[in-house]
Nucleic acid binder design. Structure first.
Lengths: 104, 104
DNA sequence: CACGACGCCTCGCATCGCTATGTATAGTGT
DNA sequence: ACACTATACATAGCGATGCGAGGCGTCGTG
């Protein structure tokens, strides 16, 4: 799978993961791996910038927590983030149907 | 729909269109629009470079033809192109299932 | 005490869709 | 004649973003 395939679809997936409950970066990477059945095993250099991007857009908010001596930045979905997630889910369906129409 | 969403998926779709029969650039754009139900209305600056890319990779071959006074570069699928199309269809299914697993 | 897992970060690269621009022919309308 | 649209090709430069590589620090285990 070419890496570019993910382009434009990652943000929505991160929103979906965080929508399931507050999560930190490292855990989000694990969730993406698990929920995609191992297909998305993403580098930290991919996910952390994406999280910062989403926070800068106001779709996520973050706060520091400490768990067993380690500091974590925990992300939560904002109201705008929840709205954006809905849009992105619908856009995915449109996109997906369109690709299948062509590829079929 | 963000433009980046297409990244990494266009080449396979072009191969699929040309697999249906020899086609030229302008016609391929029209086919993509039609087969995607209007979702993919791509700029020439998107498709022509992609065609050159695919030819450089040996997945398409081209030849000039003249139809009603206009010159067209007509593309055909090579054997390697046909193989690649199969791979990309299968990769799309993997990718698509993975995204749905996360987004669901 | 080394090593792997956990946990965060950022710089720079590569890819590639898209905008803008240029060229040229055919057909249609005024 | 003139303008405009559709057809048909091409490329330069921009922007977005996934990723590799590198760096920092904590914790538990053999």
């Amino acid at each position: 799978m070419k890496p570019e395939a993910l382009k434009g679809h990652l943000d929505g997936m991160i929103l979906a993961v965080v929508a399931a409950g507050p999560a930190h970066g490292y855990g989000i990477i694990a969730s993406l791996r698990r929920r995609s059945d191992g297909v998305f095993d993403l580098a930290e250099g991919t996910v952390y910038p994406a999280l910062h991007r989403l926070e800068a857009e106001g779709l996520l908010s973050s706060s520091w927590e400490t768990a067993s001596g380690r500091k974590r930045r925990v992300y939560r979905l904002t109201r705008r983030g929840r709205g954006s997630l809905g849009e992105r889910r619908s856009e995915w369906r449109t996109f997906s149907r369109a690709v299948e129409g062509v590829l079929a």
